[in-house]
Design a protein around this nucleic acid. Structure first.
Length: 769
DNA sequence: GTAAGAAAAATTTTT
DNA sequence: TTTTTCTTAC
């Protein structure tokens, strides 16, 4: 047996890998080779003769699972790696739930409701109960339901819990308990589970069927859990039960990177691991192999401000590295411009490829400005998150058809497509149908199957349309087991008229919808082929659905996405690393999020989130904040984030004070001046860039409401028509100069490189005589 | 029952 | 800003 790969580990990593006797907790600081420990440990178990099918490895994302599997396959061979139980909690247990579904009253082909389905269901229930949806906001109701499920509180238990009932009365939503009850009933009736159900129902399965639990206890000889700091109670208990007998379990995590409490993650799971598993051994990985000393030290100084944490000393032995550059800008628009400029500089320095660079932000909505700026400068990028492929309308429509075919009880799918494409079944009819189905406590489909029996109050014409719709779905449903997924999906989109509907005109939107539908069909085709190549039985439509419902667009990496700048939220960046990282929008009211500044606990989580962002960087890290930002159709003023002050300033490259303030205040109107003062007092550091061009008071303009307002200038620092030289674009001719939000901007024609809009403050231009 | 157009609302992070 | 809901005319 060749175990030489163990020599590639440091001492603490190696002891964590080699300890397989009992429970172990690996506290892994950022960049300390956590994934390496997990992969090597699995390889070590395999080389020691453990069967791959008895190893359960739970990860946080599908992507993490896939990458780990690939790395293991490279070490022990693809054939062995294939049989590992590796995936997210949700995907592994949905698989188990499918094979055990009958035991808990679901069918094998149960639907998985995504958050949009849950939201829609919550809204219908609130409406049916004739409650005010401004009081019973779907977001709040949803999170309340999610909270209950994550803590394994069933509707009955909810009802019996005086604290919860009291809390709801105080929050003026006393009927919360009823909504929860009805929500669960409706899911059950639709043969559907939401994301939280996948964990809750697994617990119910294990609780009510000890023999089933035992079966899996025996199956899983060793359990590994990644990102343990982000597990919730439901996940904790599943793991705890499965490992009960042998305690052959290894969990890996970093309390400093716990950033999912809004999803029910309980940091206590990792903090109290030793009391859950009495004989647990703890390994600490403290050497950071990812980042420069400056970045590691800066991150340490930040996280030090958190009271709640397991103290550890993360250190780096890499070079000192450059200080973190803090960029101060006037608008979000300019922020994009400057970040894009810096990226160009990095790219042309030849030390960095686009793929080495990431832009991280707190909210998805910030991606737009960045995107625009990158596009203007011709920088290729790839956005993760936001509206993913599977959330597009046309894709959801097709998927809804497929879902209904596989599970006719799926109410959300039915509502979505019963009148798409339009077939004369309007809201009134649908409402009657749903009402009738609730009256008889059956699914809407059941009513459709026998409209007379359930006395559906519709006229003959409508009844006919409904019957037509029903028989169309019926025909498809009969083919579930005979046709493969691709063939069936193909006839669904044709016969249903979805294809015809997307072909209505030649507008770009219509074209893109067609492409998306084709793309989806292609994906189904590929799915079938992969299954076949693996020697599995024919891939059926339900198989595809069960896989696709847990997929996010992070899982659809394409070859063409190779050398591109990455744009994503900080949450999505967890576990990733980049040579250079730009953390943008470091402002109060944004990062930390205003929703998270109520309690110290939430604030500490935001700080950890910033910690995660910082520690993604290997060599260079930039932080930027704008003084005004376009948000919800309005321009808002903002102050730098309090978190910047939390970093020891010796690691920062702060913008230095450029001008005495009197020179700058002159032309600002009263409003603006108070804003400015508020800004200054909240942040003791100087706010103007050292090397910014002197701007005379005469040319200062107040920050306008629309980001793009510009004031033409006659005699800027550079005359119109002059020739200038730029480090990247070469020689160009100045077409026009203007002041945009107080900054001199020049439109310059660089010939083949195109016309560029550059802020003179930042562009290094040489005027040619 | 449908479509279009106007008004109002909503905005964190994700499996 | 975008998205959802309401109104109105066909």
């Amino acid at each position: 047996m060749d175990l030489s790969f163990l020599n590639e580990l440091n001492e603490s990593q190696r002891s964590a890998v080699e300890y397989t006797e009992g429970a172990s907790l690996v506290i892994a600081g950022a960049g300390s080779g956590k994934t390496r420990v997990l992969t090597y440990k699995i390889a070590y178990l395999l080389k020691n003769g453990m069967a791959p099918s008895s190893i359960l490895a739970l990860t946080f994302t599908n992507k993490a699972a896939r990458e780990m599997k690939e790395r293991i396959a490279a070490m022990v061979g693809e054939k062995t790696a294939r049989y590992l139980w590796m995936g997210t909690f949700h995907s592994v247990f949905s698989r188990i739930l499918r094979s055990e579904a009958e035991r808990i009253g679901y069918s094998k082909n149960f639907t998985i409701y995504d958050s949009a389905d849950s939201k829609s269901l919550v809204k219908t229930i609130v409406k049916e109960l004739k409650l005010d949806d401004k009081v019973y906001k779907h977001g709040f109701v949803q999170s309340r339901i999610s909270y209950a499920k994550n803590n394994l509180i069933t509707p009955d238990a909810y009802l019996a819990n005086a604290d919860l009932i009291k809390a709801d009365v105080t929050s003026r939503i006393p009927l919360m308990k009823d909504i929860y009850q009805i929500y669960c009933n409706r899911c059950k009736q639709a043969d559907a589970m939401d994301f939280d159900d996948l964990l809750l129902q697994t617990n119910i399965l294990f609780r009510n069927h000890p023999d089933t639990l035992q079966k899996y206890q025996q199956l899983f000889g060793y359990i590994l859990v990644d990102e343990y700091q982000d597990t919730n109670f439901a996940q904790y208990l599943i793991v705890k039960k499965l490992a009960e007998q042998h305690e052959k379990i290894c969990v890996v995590g970093d309390d400093a990177q716990s950033i999912y409490s809004f999803r029910g993650a309980n940091i206590d799971n990792i903090l109290k691991f030793k009391s859950s598993y009495k004989n647990a051994r703890v390994f600490k990985l403290e050497q950071n192999y990812r980042s420069t000393q400056t970045i590691v030290n800066a991150a340490n100084s930040l996280i030090d401000k958190n009271a709640q944490q397991i103290r550890k000393t993360v250190f780096s032995e890499k070079e000192t590295g450059k200080p973190i550059k803090v960029l101060s800008v006037f608008t979000d628009f300019e922020e994009g411009f400057i970040v894009a400029n810096n990226i160009s500089d990095l790219r042309f320095s030849d030390k960095y490829h686009y793929q080495d660079i990431a832009i991280l932000y707190r909210t998805n909505s910030q991606s737009r400005v960045m995107e625009e700026a990158l596009r203007k400068q011709g920088i290729p990028y790839r956005i993760y998150g936001g509206l993913s492929f599977y959330q597009r309308k046309e894709i959801k429509d097709v998927i809804a058809y497929c879902r209904l075919v596989c599970n006719p009880n799926d109410e959300e799918a039915l509502k979505r497509i019963i009148n798409y494409p339009a077939r004369g079944i309007g809201d009134t009819t649908v409402n009657k149908l749903i009402e009738c189905s609730q009256l008889h406590a059956v699914s809407a489909w059941e009513v459709l199957s026998d409209m007379l029996k359930y006395n559906l109050p519709v006229n003959a014409g409508t009844a006919n349309k409904l019957a037509q719709f029903r028989s169309m779905i019926d025909v498809f449903a009969e083919q579930i087991t005979t046709q493969n997924a691709y063939d069936l999906a193909n006839s669904v989109v044709k016969v249903s008229g979805v294809i015809a509907d997307t072909y209505t005109d030649h507008s770009p939107e219509s074209m893109s919808r067609q492409e998306n539908v084709q793309e989806l069909l292609k994906a189904i085709h590929e799915f079938c082929e992969t299954k076949q190549a693996n020697g599995e039985p024919t891939a059926l439509l339900p198989d595809f659905l069960s896989e696709v419902s847990l997929l996010t667009d992070q899982d659809t990496d394409k070859e063409t996405d190779k050398d591109k700048v990455t744009l994503m939220t900080v949450h999505a960046a967890k576990g990733l690393e980049f040579k250079a990282v730009f953390i943008v929008g470091m402002e109060e009211e944004l990062f930390p999020s205003p929703f998270c500044t109520q309690s110290e606990r939430e604030l500490e989580e935001e700080r950890r989130l910033f910690y995660v962002a910082l520690t993604r960087a290997e060599e260079l890290c930039y932080i930027s904040y704008a003084k005004s930002r376009f948000k919800n159709g309005k321009t808002n003023f903002s102050n730098p984030s309090r978190f910047i002050k939390d970093i020891d300033e010796q690691y920062l490259d702060m913008p230095a004070e450029a001008k005495p303030k009197q020179a700058r205040i002159n032309d600002w109107d009263d409003d603006m001046e108070t804003e400015r003062n508020r800004f200054k007092s909240s942040f003791s550091k100087p706010i103007f860039k050292e090397n910014s061009l002197p701007v005379s008071p005469k040319r200062m303009v107040k920050i306008s409401n629309s980001a793009g307002d510009k004031v033409p200038t006659e005699n800027g620092s550079i005359p119109t028509g002059a020739f200038v030289k730029h480090g990247i674009f070469g020689i160009g001719k100045v077409l026009e100069t203007s002041i945009v939000n107080g900054n001199e901007k020049a439109d310059i024609d660089f010939g083949e490189k195109g016309v560029k809009s550059l802020l003179l403050k930042f562009a290094k231009l040489e005027v040619l005589e």
